[in-house]
């Protein structure tokens, strides 16, 4: 009975989603030849003016890296307030956790869109968008790592007369460094992937080059840029995984 209720619930949710999205297989079928034509026409890949693509790719890496660094600085005080072992004043605990959820809930792309309007086009707006969203993610991941840590060393520090923040800085942060550093690398890797599309809203990076090529229906160029994006994300993935393995 319970199982049947779960299945009925699942089917109802899927039916509601289908009603909203209105998937149309006939339209997909009609569009496939066009898609195939673009892919076939995209070869050979057009790497002419590779310097521009490389510069935009570097911009993507730079804004994702700087955005993650700024996010880490923003996240540190918030995460300390959002973790029970380190929060010096518990009335702040739930409001700060809600703030972190709100920052995480708004995508970096949306933040970038707002910052483009506020500070103008370019990677600076993208970096700010990445930083704000990632501050929420890092704050959440770090505070959870701190809440899951062995409380005994913290208690020993507290019993020796240390305040919560002091005990956290001396004991908790070094103890959980592998977990927090690993989470930071994961967010950095995610940001490199996510930053490849920020150019679509004028927030800098390789996405800007991609948008220009799509607008001109230059599919040789589009595929070349996609190849660079895949290489970039794979490299970030490998570097992050290797560093995480060393940390844990």
């Amino acid at each position: 009975m319970r199982r049947a209720a779960w299945i009925a619930c699942f089917v109802a949710v899927q039916a509601a989603c289908i009603w909203v999205v209105q998937p149309d297989l006939a339209r997909l079928w009609a569009g496939l030849p066009r898609l195939a034509g673009w892919i076939a026409g995209g070869f050979p890949l057009d790497f002419s003016g590779f310097g521009d693509i490389a510069q935009r790719a570097a911009e993507t890496v730079a804004l994702a890296t700087l955005g993650t660094t700024v996010a880490a600085f923003l996240a540190l005080p918030l995460a300390l307030l959002a973790a029970r072992p380190s929060c010096p004043w518990m009335p702040l605990y739930h409001p700060v956790r809600t703030l972190l959820d709100a920052l995480r809930g708004v995508d970096g792309f949306v933040f970038a869109l707002i910052f483009v309007a506020a500070v103008g086009l370019g990677p600076f707006a993208g970096m700010l968008g990445v930083a704000l969203h990632s501050a929420g993610s890092l704050g959440k991941l770090w505070s959870e790592a701190w809440e899951a840590a062995d409380p005994a060393p913290m208690e020993a520090a507290r019993s020796a007369g240390a305040g919560r923040a002091q005990a956290a800085s001396v004991v908790l942060l070094p103890e959980t460094l592998p977990q927090t550093a690993s989470a930071t690398l994961y967010v950095w890797e995610f940001n490199i992937r996510a930053s490849t599309v920020l150019g679509l809203v004028g927030a800098g990076g390789i996405g800007q080059e991609l948008k220009n090529a799509v607008d001109l229906l230059d599919f040789n160029r589009v595929l070349a840029i996609l190849a660079v994006i895949v290489a970039l994300t794979l490299a970030a993935d490998r570097i992050s995984a290797a560093l995480r393995r060393r940390l844990l």
């Binding site: 060393p153 020993a156 520090a157 020796a160 007369g161 240390a162 305040g163 923040a165 002091q166 005990a167 800085s169 001396v170 004991v171």
Partner: peptide
């Protein structure tokens, strides 16, 4: 040194 935290300021310890 954790035992001395009651006598050491926040920033010095951090």
């Amino acid at each position: 040194l954790v035992g001395a935290l009651g006598r050491i300021g926040f920033w010095r310890a951090a």
